[in-house]
Design a protein around this nucleic acid. Structure first.
Lengths: 155, 155
DNA sequence: ATGAGTGCAAAGGCTTTGCATTAGG
DNA sequence: CCTAATGCAAAGCCTTTGCACTCAT
């Protein structure tokens, strides 16, 4: 959640932009102003953002640039696109940059909020993953846990 | 998963169609042939189906009818639409008809497979939900747990 | 007859792409 | 200079909607 995973000061922002630039460069691409602006937007938020929300914050950026650069950032492993209940693309920083967390989604307005699971639960999830892997033959690489509910505003 | 939650014989299929018909009727709507065909398709599969997959199975059904009837089935609580991993709408039977389960998703080919979590994990999830609800003020109604990995075919 | 359901086609809404222009290395 | 990136507009794709026709009660 925000207190834990983001807002750790501007120093970390610089570090993160550096890591982002590195990953983008690894694809022979440039860490341009708009890409930096996108990362900044994701960094400021404590929840996944829709394209519309991102564009609202980064005034003047054309939609096509946002989509294209977000795609690049995802390919570079800087960002991640997640599915939502309302079929709107939502973006957040990659887990290894923002920290592992889960989402709480309002089934009414679709808004997502980040939250961290307890260590015990995480352990149980990893253990369950191991079991399912053994049962199915899948090679499991991660998990996604979302809680559905109604936010205070919608309830 | 398939062995546990589906394929329990034709008797159960009849029971399920009955339940579906009842729920649709509760909305003053009819359990028509195409709606029955949709439920049949979902019942046969041991995983969520895309519209395309459903249409392939129910030959001759127009897309618009599939969408409209799937919407009705969702409203009636017979089916459920899943947030598409790849922005493709995927449908499955409602949890109280098919049983509570989770999904294993192949990050390579996108296919979803059902699986059941252990009772212990389910308890841990419910407990975690309670905690998060208390912390955030959300009214939590359920959870979604997905494992990501590579299926045997893709690995 | 009366309202629900169906099918076709057209419209919507989010996302991607083509192409000429600009900018970074 | 040369390739990547940008911006605008047009095209794509899944999904929804309008409308006239058919069907069940």
């Amino acid at each position: 959640m925000s207190e834990v995973l983001a807002d750790q000061g501007h120093a970390d922002h610089a570090v993160l932009h550096g890591a982002a630039a590195e990953r983008v460069a690894a694809l022979d691409q440039r860490y341009t102003a708009s890409r930096r602006a996108l990362v900044h937007a994701l960094l400021e938020a404590d929840r996944p953002l829709t394209i519309t929300e991102i564009l609202a914050g980064a005034k003047g950026m054309p939609q096509s640039s946002a989509y294209r650069n977000l795609t690049v950032l995802c390919e570079a492993g800087v960002a991640r696109r997640l599915p939502g209940v309302d079929d709107l693309g939502r973006f957040e920083l990659a887990e290894d940059l923002a920290g592992h967390h889960h989402h709480l989604q309002c089934t009414s307005c679709g808004t997502l909020v980040d939250f961290a699971a307890s260590p015990q639960l995480e352990r149980a999830l990893v253990e369950a993953a191991r079991r399912v892997a053994a049962e199915t033959g899948y090679e499991i690489t991660g998990h996604r846990l979302d809680f559905d509910g109604r936010c205070p505003a919608c309830a």
